[in-house]
Amino acid sequence: MAQHVRGVIARAKGEPVELTTIVVPDPGPGEAVVDIQACGVCHTDLHYREGGINDDFPFLLGHEAAGVVESVGEGVTEVAPGDYVILNWRAVCGQCRACKRGRPQYCFDTHNAKQKMTLLDGTELTPALGIGAFADKTLVAAGQCTKVDPAASPAAAGLLGCGVMAGIGAAINTGNVGRGDSVAVIGCGGVGDAAVAGARLAGARRIIAVDIDDRKLEKARSVGATHTVNSREADPVEAIRELTDGFGADVVIEAVGRPETYRQAFYARDLAGTVVLVGVPTPEMNIELPLLDVFGRGGALKSSWYGDCLPSRDFPMLIDLYLQGRLDLDAFVTETVGLDDVEEAFARMHGGDVLRSVVVL
């Protein structure tokens, strides 16, 4: 039967979030109910609260989560009750043209649970990124659950569900960073620092972190940056070229999502180098580049969707690297908080005081 649990919702644009009772139905065909153990506080959740995603209020917030499968619906074979899982927001369909071409990481028909979680009065909730994990339990499509080694800390493991995977994947999957490459990362929040860590995992020789905040640059050094540039104090394009023998970086990852930083990334790469856009722009943003420069510099201009990850492939691998001590996911956890601390966590995140707050249940 349906369960009544605690959940953090955003009722209206710009209003403080609210901890209330939500109704989680029994899982239907292809669905699973997951007992949430930890969930990261991501900028995307703040965007939902501010109406920056859409206006389908009320939202059930939270999506960077790890937990244990409590129950599954008819036909579910991917996971079973008791499995320790990381949640993802792109359950692949297996039938679209991308999936049939062997590129499920680009699935064009990803899906979520068909049933809706609700408030006690029956009001339907829109779960953030189809997950809604600022809650004791949530309902998802079974394909959104990826089984991983239960030895991994839930606070650290859950971060692979969004921001950390986006950054690591931008370096490894989209940017194809290889051994000996030079890499520059512009913007050193959670995603940018994860891109730094991904470049380090891939064997990059030189990793240049760029930001306007010295606190963030110091954190980037702790996860793998070999050099830092404060772009308030120096021209980042010239600084990156100076650190790469005058040529520019082999791969430049733009983790801000603004025209001015994208332009910096474009001109800070070597000839035939790669630019990866993983920062998310807003709808009104535009950029102009001389078409001759686009042609003459060669290389590739790429966008990274969710780090171009395939959760069934990437999550278990990265958790294994974490347990081997080769990927310090704990470094991304600044603090742990309770479900009733989400609004305060948003304020600290907005002020740049934390890399990630993580709600632990």
Results as ranks from 00 to 15, higher is better:
Met1Pro: 15
Met1Asn: 14
Ala2His: 01
Gln3Ser: 14
Val5Cys: 10
Arg6Asp: 12
Ile9Lys: 04
Ala12Gly: 10
Ala12Gln: 01
Lys13Trp: 01
Gly14Gln: 04
Leu19Trp: 06
Thr20Ala: 05
Thr21Arg: 14
Ile22Arg: 02
Val24Met: 08
Pro27Ile: 07
Pro27Thr: 06
Pro29Ala: 07
Gly30Ser: 12
Gly30Phe: 00
Gly30Met: 08
Glu31Lys: 09
Gln37Lys: 14
Gln37Tyr: 07
Ala38Asn: 03
His43Gly: 03
Arg49Leu: 00
Gly52Lys: 04
Pro58Glu: 08
Gly62Gln: 01
Ala65Leu: 09
Ala65Lys: 06
Val68Ala: 09
Gly73Asn: 10
Glu74Ile: 01
Glu74Asp: 15
Asp83Pro: 07
Val85Trp: 01
Val85Pro: 06
Leu87Phe: 04
Leu87Pro: 05
Arg90Val: 00
Ala91Thr: 10
Cys93Arg: 06
Arg97Asn: 09
Asn112Ile: 04
Met117Arg: 00
Leu120Val: 14
Gly122His: 00
Leu125Trp: 01
Thr126Leu: 01
Gly132Asp: 09
Ala133Lys: 00
Thr138Phe: 02
Ala141Trp: 02
Val148Arg: 02
Val148Gln: 08
Pro150Leu: 00
Pro154Gly: 10
Leu159Gly: 13
Leu160Phe: 13
Gly161Lys: 05
Cys162Ala: 06
Cys162Asn: 10
Ala166Tyr: 03
Gly167Glu: 05
Ile168Pro: 05
Gly169Asn: 11
Ala170Asn: 05
Ile172Asn: 11
Asn173Leu: 11
Thr174Glu: 09
Val177Pro: 02
Gly178Ser: 12
Arg179Asp: 13
Asp181Thr: 10
Asp181Pro: 03
Asp181Tyr: 08
Ser182Met: 10
Ser182Gly: 13
Cys188Glu: 14
Gly190Ser: 14
Val191Phe: 05
Ala195Arg: 01
Val196Trp: 08
Ala199Asp: 07
Ala204Met: 10
Arg205Met: 14
Ile207His: 04
Ala209Glu: 02
Lys216Met: 11
Val223Thr: 14
Thr226Asp: 01
His227Thr: 08
Ser231Glu: 07
Arg232Ile: 09
Pro236Trp: 00
Gly246Arg: 07
Ala249Asn: 05
Val252Tyr: 02
Ile253Pro: 13
Arg258Val: 14
Arg258Trp: 00
Arg258Ala: 15
Arg258Cys: 07
Pro259Thr: 02
Glu260Val: 12
Glu260Gly: 04
Thr261Trp: 08
Phe266Cys: 09
Phe266Met: 13
Tyr267Trp: 11
Ala268Ile: 10
Asp270Gly: 13
Asp270Cys: 11
Val276Leu: 05
Leu277Cys: 14
Val278Tyr: 02
Pro281Val: 05
Pro290Ser: 12
Gly296Ile: 00
Arg297Thr: 14
Arg297Pro: 03
Gly299Ala: 07
Leu301Met: 12
Lys302Pro: 04
Gly307Thr: 12
Cys309His: 07
Arg313Thr: 15
Asp314Met: 07
Phe315Ile: 07
Met317Lys: 14
Leu318Asp: 11
Ile319His: 08
Ile319Arg: 05
Asp320Ser: 13
Tyr322Leu: 09
Gly325Glu: 02
Leu327Ile: 10
Asp328Leu: 03
Phe332Gln: 06
Thr334Lys: 04
Gly338Thr: 11
Asp341Trp: 05
Ala345Thr: 14
Arg348Lys: 08
Met349Tyr: 09
His350Thr: 15
Gly351Leu: 11
Gly352Glu: 14
Gly352Val: 13
Asp353Glu: 15
Leu355His: 00
Arg356Ser: 07
Val359Cys: 08
Leu361Arg: 12
